[in-house]
Design a binder for these strands. Structure first.
Lengths: 236, 236
DNA sequence: GCTTTTAATGACTGAATGTTCAGTTAATAA
DNA sequence: TTATTAACTGAACATTCAGTCATTAAAAGC
């Protein structure tokens, strides 16, 4: 049996794992690429075309390496996909957790900051393609779905749940942060980002050709969606 | 150029299109299957495994025919997919439209009936797999995405929008039925059905092994989600 | 029976693509 | 210089599967 999960990156030589302070002398040809770059290129293509329709040859081409090189860093296409998910979303959660810990104002303001932060960091960036990718492929990759569920969804839900509980404890919100409420709170933004990356449309009457006007309309929509869920939390 | 779109079912002999009142005499071997059955079997597999991972041979096997037979009724895999979408969801919309036309009570009650109806007819059945399928495959099949957007999403949004406007006109809802609000209203139920058909979980603490308890917990969650959006609509 | 017509089959094909690996390149160590 | 090691390459391989088609089956008309 292999020493590492088939979904984890292939370990490179020990030198690459050494600290920068003591870069052990290396022999052989220096690496031209690093796994993070490959995963970043793969993210773009996975998000744009979906998992099945993304050819490893295109990922390699985008990263400026050959197809064979991919297999030096990732055991398989699925392992590359796992790396994309892990590298893309897990780091984005820390910021939100710090925000909830340090907040002192109203629950509504905390919720606004959290949801706007999520939108800026994930919804409005290419990372927004990952939720759609996971919805599309979770059934085909139970291991990766489990990773996503555990490392991303569970942590994210706990985060939002704590924010709702915060407002509830202050008497501002009429419900506690149970999973069902958390899902209802995230739903409008999540659905919007899913639509954006699948149908490519967001179904409002904004002009498609003027990018600044579209961005303006998007901000208005996000604000409306956020205020919508805050109304639901605050009622009475 | 062919007389029919490649995404439409292959027309059968004229006799099959004749009314039951005047079934013209037919020659040759009678058909053992009908396209609707094939599409129904394909729905199950598409929903379960996704488009790319569903092999036409398995669809044929599930329907009790051979792979070649599929091509007597559908030009291609994409055409079969289109038929699945059209046959599955377009008919389900008429009921909701009648409901909005005939309703006379409060806006909140209309919304409850609409959302519960959607859940019973789509969310809780295998048809609930279609939204996930469309989110997953829209980019790969622009034609089918356009069909879905026009025949399903646009009509559904108009429906919900009219219901919100109804409550708004009665002074019960604080917002009108613009597309952004419609999306926020549908979001919790849609997201839940997307999760159900991708991750297979709904992230609440209910026991997975007891089906009746799970159904009970699901009803409670749906009710909570519906009351959540109604609070957001009613505020003040 | 025999012919005609439609339905159905399933082995086959061809294209696409994930994966492998023998060989090449570029660096360090002796 | 030469040996050694690691990174990299890309053609070849193996598999999967949508789509085809020659053949067989079953009904109706004569």
């Amino acid at each position: 049996m292999s020493e590492h999960s088939p979904l984890l990156p292939v370990p490179r030589s020990a030198e690459l794992l050494a600290t920068d302070a003591h870069p052990l002398v290396r022999r052989g040809r220096p690496a031209l690429v690093d796994p993070a770059t490959l995963a970043a290129c793969a993210l773009d293509l996975f998000v744009e075309k979906g998992y099945a329709a993304t050819r490893l040859e295109d990922v390699a081409l985008a990263a400026g390496v050959s197809k064979g090189t991919l297999y030096l860093y990732f055991d398989s296409k699925a392992a590359l996909f796992a790396a994309v998910v892990r590298q893309g979303l897990v780091p984005a959660l820390a910021g939100g957790e710090a925000l909830v810990d340090s907040h002192r104002g109203s629950g509504a303001d905390l919720m606004r900051e959290l949801l706007w932060g999520w939108w800026r960091l994930i919804g409005a960036t290419r990372l927004g393609g990952l939720p759609k990718l996971m919805v599309a492929e979770a059934r085909n990759f139970p291991d990766i779905a489990e990773l996503y569920h555990r490392e991303v969804m569970a942590r994210g839900c706990a985060l939002i749940g704590r924010a709702i509980d915060y407002g509830h404890a202050r008497g501002e919100f009429c419900v506690a942060g149970d999973p069902c409420t958390v899902q209802a709170v995230m739903a409008p933004l999540l659905l919007r980002v899913l639509m954006k990356h699948s149908f490519g449309c967001v179904d409002h009457a904004a002009p498609e050709d003027d990018p600044s006007a579209a961005a303006q309309a998007e901000s208005t929509d996000i604000a409306a969606a956020i205020e919508f869920v805050i109304r639901a939390l605050e009622h009475d």
